[in-house]
């Protein structure tokens, strides 16, 4: 015996919407499976070229990670907290905290660049579409690098170092005219950072991922480290 109410008729709008919801979840799973595989490829390649950094951490960007199992998820939580891979970042780092010679390589994923504030509190996804329909936005991966030269940056976290470089760092070109990096004095160390963003559309295959993400990322790591060394050489003792 069932006390469940009968489902609405097939032709109802709600029925169609639930079909869309089921379809959307299946598609999101398929997308996330591929996204994680892509990130694994990138991580493997980075670590093959630079063995020092180990996997550091991941975290959603702009909202919280899903809470522990003993937390009441019905109160005080954003629904976004339960879509952690929608916007998140992960990194590989040579040490927990910045120190001389340390390196951090990170990737930030945005499934929809249309995500943003819609007023106080939890962003309302249905309001994204009014001025920002999905078709005009992109799905992106941003690669970023932070490298520390000799000396002690005297900061407690990579986040703090990144913030200091954003505020005080200066864009510098390499001596050979190559790509720039943002370099600055942090504590007694020179440190540098740089990033670039690719549209996930360009990363359809492993070959394209290597061409458009891995190879430029490896080049950027070398450039940032070189920019820090060149700035150190140019700094009077």
């Amino acid at each position: 015996m069932s006390t469940s109410p009968p489902p609405p008729p097939d032709e109802s709008e709600l029925t169609r919407q639930f079909v869309e919801v089921r379809r959307a979840f299946r598609l999101v799973h398929a997308y996330q499976r591929r996204l994680l595989d892509l990130l694994r490829l990138v991580g493997d390649r980075v670590r093959a070229a630079y063995p020092d950094p180990n996997f550091g951490m991941w975290s959603p960007s702009g909202y919280s990670a899903p809470p522990r199992s003993d937390v009441d998820i019905t109160r005080g939580k954003w629904a976004w907290d339960f879509l952690p891979l929608y916007r998140f970042q992960l990194d590989w780092r040579s040490s927990d905290r910045p120190k001389a010679g340390a390196l951090l390589v990170g990737l930030r994923h945005e499934a929809d660049t249309g995500y943003g504030s819609t007023g106080p509190g939890e962003p309302d996804s249905l309001k994204f579409g009014e001025e920002n329909p999905p078709a005009v936005h992109r799905t992106t991966l941003t690669a970023y690098v932070i490298a520390v030269g000799d000396g002690d940056p005297q900061v407690t976290s990579w986040g703090e170092l990144s913030a200091v470089l954003k505020e005080k760092g200066e864009q510098k070109r390499l001596a050979d005219g190559g790509e720039a990096a943002r370099v600055g004095q942090v504590g007694t160390a020179l440190a540098g950072t740089e990033s670039f963003t690719v549209d996930a559309l360009t990363l359809a295959t492993p070959e394209k991922t290597v061409e458009w993400l891995v190879t430029p990322l490896l080049g950027m790591i070398a450039d940032v480290q070189l920019a820090v060394r060149e700035a150190g050489a140019a700094t009077p003792a």
Binding site: R23, L27, A30, L38, P206
Partner: peptide
């Protein structure tokens, strides 16, 4: 087998 976006299904 690793999967990439080229095999993302269309429903």
């Amino acid at each position: 087998d690793m999967r990439f976006f080229e095999t993302l299904p269309s429903w």
